[in-house]
Design a protein around this nucleic acid. Structure first.
Length: 428
RNA sequence: GGGCAGUUUCCAGAGCGGCCAAAUGGGGCGGACUGUAAAUCCGCUGUCUACGACUUCGGUGGUUCGAAUCCACCACUGCCCA
């Protein structure tokens, strides 16, 4: 049994830890859990850290429980939120729950023949049987309001103008009860989470101690930050999702590849399972040769393979080469239709009628009509600034006209605005 | 309820009768350099049938040859007094 805490420590994944946690983990196979809130119909890369924590737990020979918050999702966690959250409708919640469960199955080993097989639990399953009165007698009696009010997440909101509803105030008790329930019914002895969860987690261990006299353990992982102060996990297009239908593997790969130097060392430790020796070697090789971006490439490779697949990764690399290398006009022209569409998967497309090109369309009108540029004025300026390329060839001058002879595979036109923005024009 | 100040293009903020599509800064977007980075430098940033035309300066009317600029009313915002 590998020492989990030691492993996580050098990776910089431990923020707070309850005394005795390491001893418990070294003593026996321990069951540990993390909760996932069904706030959307897909997990995003912010949820990747908890997934990886559970994965490490399992690799070290312990038993992970992934808890989906069917009940807690109905309440809303106030931690880190400055305002009261809106309720999700029941259908949305159920839909999200199903999606999240399906995703989680990909990342842990649920093969029940193993003693430390992962398990999925839904806290709605036990909360649906508990009446309000049962709850306030069973859980509420053991925790004082004074104790609950002392939590940071609560204090902040009490001092704010928006206040805090009774519902959200209760959240920590609901989550605390989860831990108590898992403690008594699943022999769960460990809870993990982001450091913003510390307050809620401690309420759980407190509840366990007061109700059963038993001891439960916990640790948290630092929240992921970016060196430039931006919010981690957002790309220009918004959240980076794990669902390939919402964020294509190519975009996912690009997100990691674009990691800033200042963050890369930290991220490769947290988001990959590479052993310490290999990471140290990579960092050493990267230092002084930052322009080669070895760290970013390895990071993007590992995470893309873990979340999607090796095939998806290889494809993303190929697509990146075609899209970003300069002398690829010829390669592009050689691709067949299938390859072309795969490389450009996720690129926004516009349809135009073939007749438009037969007479030769002037570049400015084409850009404006296809909505690639919002107006002719802007299209004109963009072309004059050298910001538009067709099929990887820069457009020179606003008099340029586009004809059917330029179509790739007789159907497609790859329009590029600036370095990173692509549009696929499909002729019908 | 009374008094004062304000409302300008994505944001902040100049302009106070013609020289205003409107200074400057920020942001955004391009280009060069680079590592699909940072920093730096350069350009663009109301629309169009584009060396010109058209529509914008809270709203509606008015004064004037001419208004973002002056007047009236309305709406909203901020500050002060009740």
């Amino acid at each position: 049994m590998t020492n989990l805490i030691e492993e996580l420590q050098w990776r910089g994944m431990i923020q707070d830890i309850m005394p005795g946690t390491e001893e418990q983990l070294n003593k026996e196979m321990t069951t540990g859990y993390i909760g996932f809130d069904p706030t959307a119909d897909s997990l995003h890369i912010g949820n990747l850290v908890p997934i990886i924590l559970l994965n490490h737990l399992q690799r070290c020979g312990h038993k992970p429980l992934a808890l989906v918050g069917g009940a807690t999702g109905m309440v809303g966690d106030p931690s880190g939120k400055s305002e009261e959250r809106n309720f999700l409708s029941e259908e949305t919640l159920n839909h999200n729950l199903a999606c999240v469960k399906k995703q989680l199955e990909k990342y842990l080993d649920f093969n029940s023949s193993k003693p430390n097989a992962a398990e999925m639990v839904n806290n709605y399953d036990w909360f649906k049987h508990i009446s309000f009165l049962d709850f306030i007698r069973e859980a509420g009696k053991h925790i004082t309001v004074n104790y609950m009010m002392a939590k940071d997440s609560v204090k902040k909101r009490l001092n704010s103008d928006s206040g805090m509803s009774f519902t959200e105030f209760t959240y920590q008790l609901v989550q605390g009860y989860d831990y108590y329930w898992l403690y008594t019914n699943k022999q769960c002895r460990l809870q993990m989470g982001g450091s913003d969860q510390w307050g809620n987690i401690v309420t759980g261990t407190e509840l366990i101690r007061r109700k059963t006299g038993g001891e439960a353990f916990a640790f948290t992982c630092p929240l992921i930050t970016k060196a430039d102060g931006g919010k981690f996990g957002k790309s220009e297009k918004g959240n980076v999702w794990l669902d390939p239908a919402k964020t294509s593997p190519y975009q996912f790969y690009q997100f990691w590849l674009n990691t800033a130097d200042a963050d890369a060392e930290k991220y490769i430790k947290i988001f990959t399972f590479l052993p310490k020796a290999e990471i140290d070697a990579l960092i050493a090789a990267h230092t002084g040769n930052e322009h080669q971006r070895q760290l970013q490439k390895k990071l993007a490779e590992e995470v893309t393979c873990f979340v999607h697949s090796r095939a998806d990764y290889e494809f993303a690399v190929k697509a990146s080469e075609i899209l970003f290398n300069n002398d690829t006009a010829e390669i592009l022209a050689q691709l067949n239709e299938d390859q072309l569409l795969q490389v450009l998967d996720g690129v926004p497309t516009v349809n135009i009628a073939k007749s438009v090109l037969e007479a030769g369309a002037d570049i400015v009108s084409l850009l404006a009509d296809t909505k690639i540029m919002p107006s002719k004025g802007e299209a004109r300026k963009m072309v004059q600034n050298g910001g538009i390329s067709i099929n990887k060839v820069k457009v020179e001058g606003i008099e340029t006209s586009i004809t059917a002879s330029q179509l790739l595979n007789n159907r497609y036109l790859l329009v590029q605005r600036g370095k990173k923005h692509y549009h696929l024009v499909v002729v019908e």
